[in-house]
Structures are given as structure tokens and as C-alpha cells.
């Protein structure tokens, strides 16, 4: 249970306000959101693991540079793999894969956790933070695609009778600002829930 915090209570995006940058732009549809979530999880977990393994050898003076080097290497590897095996999605993600480097979650976890913990807890911490971040992306992506285009994962899910009854896709959902408003609402819900638990 100790490690589950980042999924909800300490969610990096919703509570710690880390790493909102860049990534919300890929949530207009579910598929790129999921791929982005997985990429961030992989980078976050592996960089945590590597830095944790190297932690006693890294000279403190240059640790930020070493961290940047490790993270950007991992990001490039992920990017290359996406281009080779998930070409369609990699086109949708375009520069946002590269921007994982400056995602504050990753650098933040390296500084706050991996530098002072062993490899296994670091790995788990990385996975959990990546997933907590991914969860937000996926929830936002689901809402935006479902209400914006009436599809999920590109399959139409809303029955035709809806449209015949006068239902219209909400084009507003697809526009970038809606992602922010959705995240704001998620924070609202989470905060309300937290208070009632207490």
C-alpha cells in the first residue's frame, strides 16, 4: 500500500502539480494518451532505477547533468522504438515525446527519491509515479474523445440513435483549453473526496 500513493492521494499531476507541461496536448484522443502514459512510465521507472544504481558514484556537483544525460538517452531510445513499432501514434505525439525530458515528474523523482534509495524501491516509485501521471492522461483522454468525437480508441461507441435524437459531438472538448478545465475539475473532485475521507 505504501507505494500506491502516487496513483491518487499524492498524484504527481493533481496534487504535486508536476509535469502537466507538454503532455496534456496529446489527450485529444485516447490512443496517443495511453502511449504517452506508457512512455513516461517507462522513462520514469528506468531512469529512477539507473540513477539509483549509480547514486554512490555520481559526483554531487554534476548530478543534474548526469540525470539529464540519462533521461534524454532513455527518451531518445523510447522515441526511436515508437517510430519503428508504433509509427502512426509516434506521428501524433511528435515533439511531445521529446518533451518528456523536461517533464518535471521525472527529474523531480530522481532528485527526491532515486538519489537516496535502493534500486528496487526506486524502480517501484518510478513505475507508480509514471502510472499516476498516466492515469490523469487516460482519464482526460477518455473524456475528450468520448464527448468530443463520440469514439473511443477510434471505434464509435455512441449508438446511432443518440445522434438521431439530436445529440451532437461537443467540438469544444477537442480544443486544447478543455484539457485544462478537465484537469481542474479532477483536482476539485479529488480534493472534495479527500476531505470527506478525513
Amino acid at each position: 500500500m505504501k507505494y500506491l500513493g502516487p496513483l491518487a492521494k499524492d498524484n504527481p499531476v493533481l496534487v504535486q502539480v508536476l509535469g502537466v507541461c507538454s503532455a496534456l496536448a496529446v489527450t485529444a484522443q485516447l490512443k496517443p494518451a495511453v502511449v504517452m502514459a506508457l512512455s513516461v512510465t517507462v522513462v520514469c521507472a528506468l531512469s529512477n532505477l539507473i540513477i539509483s544504481l549509480m547514486r554512490s558514484t555520481i559526483p554531487p556537483r554534476i548530478r543534474i547533468i548526469v540525470q539529464l544525460l540519462v533521461v534524454s538517452t532513455l527518451v531518445i531510445v523510447v522515441d526511436q522504438f515508437l517510430q519503428a513499432y508504433l509509427y502512426e501514434v509516434s506521428k501524433m505525439l511528435s515533439v511531445f515525446v521529446g518533451l518528456i525530458i523536461t517533464n518535471c515528474i521525472i527529474m523531480g523523482r530522481l532528485e527526491a527519491f532515486a538519489l537516496s534509495h535502493g534500486p528496487l524501491p526506486s524502480l517501484i516509485d518510478g513505475v507508480m509515479n509514471g502510472l499516476g501521471y498516466g492515469l490523469v492522461l487516460v482519464v482526460v483522454g477518455t473524456f475528450r474523445e468520448l464527448f468530443g468525437t463520440g469514439t473511443l480508441w477510434n471505434f464509435p461507441v455512441l449508438p446511432h440513435s443518440f445522434y438521431e435524437a439530436g445529440y451532437m459531438n461537443n467540438g469544444l472538448m477537442i480544443l486544447p483549453p478543455m484539457a485544462l478545465i478537465l484537469v481542474g475539475s479532477l483536482i476539485w473532485i479529488l480534493n472534495s473526496a479527500k476531505k470527506s475521507v478525513k
Binding site: 483549453p177 478543455m178 485544462l180 478545465i181 481542474g184 475539475s185 483536482i187
Partner: peptide, 14 residues
């Protein structure tokens, strides 16, 4: 109350 701070900040940005 629950919307204060970051919640409202996101919504304003939107």
C-alpha cells in the same frame, strides 16, 4: 474550498 489553489488555476488557464 476544494477548488481553491491549483484547481481554479487550471480552469482559469482553460
Amino acid at each position: 474550498k476544494p477548488l481553491q489553489g491549483n484547481g481554479i488555476a487550471y480552469i482559469i488557464t482553460g
